[in-house]
Amino acid sequence: MSEPASRPGVVVLDYGSGNLRSVVRAVERAGASVTLTGDFDTALAADGLVVPGVGAYAACMAGLRGIKGDRIIGRRLAGGRPVLGICVGMQILFAGGVEHGVETDGCDEWPGLVTRLEADVVPHMGWNTVEAPAGTRLFAGVEDERFYFVHSYAARSWDLVTNDRTAAPLVTWAEHGGDRFVAAVENGPLSATQFHPEKSGDAGAALLRNWVSSLA
């Protein structure tokens, strides 16, 4: 019998934000060997990096910068090493976020601001469908499933312009109360979801397996 393939090593980045244990368990179930740490070198060297996040944008960015997490993300992406952002961990990848009239700088991997949803009922909390684009790998097999969202803010436009030499990112959209927002992005080594795959049942588990399998 042949030996089973080794499990890819994933770091869930611990910077003081997110329901970290549930993310760790979900990524382990998806087939990865997971380390929960904020250590710079360990996060840099992992096969994959997951950046979770809950709460206020400014607080998440302060925690991230406190462990040089913005530099970890930037250096990983410069080397083509995969990163997955979840919820506020997706939002901080944009140029900035505006909460209560205060703008906070983000990691600026993508242009645009994260702003409050313009819907009658905020936060957007519960299960929702998404509009995944053709060619998606992240949503392969679960394009028509529902995912679990808990958020009041989102990227409500996609402002990145690419040239003919660069593959355009695949952007997945969702709608709440008539307001469309970015639900996920697949951009080379950088992927992110506004919803919580670790809370999204079988569909979320399948999405995480898709991501982990891409690390091989």
Rank of each mutant, 00 (worst) to 15 (best):
G55T: 01
G55W: 05
G55R: 09
A56H: 14
A56C: 08
A56K: 02
Y57I: 01
Y57M: 12
Y57Q: 04
Y57S: 11
Y57K: 05
Y57L: 10
A58F: 00
A58I: 03
A59H: 12
A59P: 00
A59W: 00
A59V: 07
A59Y: 00
C60R: 03
C60W: 01
C60P: 06
M61E: 08
M61V: 11
A62C: 04
A62T: 14
A62W: 00
G63N: 01
G63C: 04
G63Y: 01
L64K: 06
L64A: 13
L64Q: 05
R65Y: 06
R65Q: 15
R65D: 12
R65V: 08
R65K: 14
R65N: 13
I67F: 01
I67M: 09
K68P: 00
K68L: 13
G69Y: 07
D70Q: 03
D70L: 09
D70W: 02
D70E: 13
R71K: 15
R71L: 15
R71C: 07
R71P: 00
I72W: 07
I72R: 06
I72D: 09
I72T: 07
I73R: 05
G74M: 03
G74P: 04
G74Y: 01
G74V: 00
R76K: 12
L77I: 14
A78Q: 13
G79T: 01
G79E: 15
G79M: 12
G79A: 15
G80L: 12
G80A: 11
G80V: 07
G80C: 13
R81W: 04
R81H: 08
R81A: 13
P82N: 14
P82S: 10
P82I: 10
P82F: 10
V83H: 02
V83E: 03
L84V: 09
L84D: 06
G85Y: 01
G85K: 05
I86W: 00
I86V: 15
I86T: 02
I86N: 11
I86F: 07
I86H: 06
C87I: 03
V88S: 05
V88Y: 02
G89C: 08
M90D: 07
M90V: 10
M90W: 02
M90E: 05
Q91W: 08
Q91C: 11
I92A: 05
I92C: 11
I92P: 05
I92V: 15
I92L: 15
F94A: 10
F94D: 01
A95W: 06
A95I: 04
A95D: 14
G96M: 06
G96P: 13
G97Y: 01
G97V: 02
V98M: 05
V98P: 04
E99W: 07
E99F: 03
E99C: 06
H100P: 00
H100E: 15
H100I: 00
H100C: 14
H100S: 15
G101E: 12
V102E: 15
E103Q: 14
E103L: 03
E103V: 10
E103T: 15
T104M: 09
T104K: 06
T104E: 14
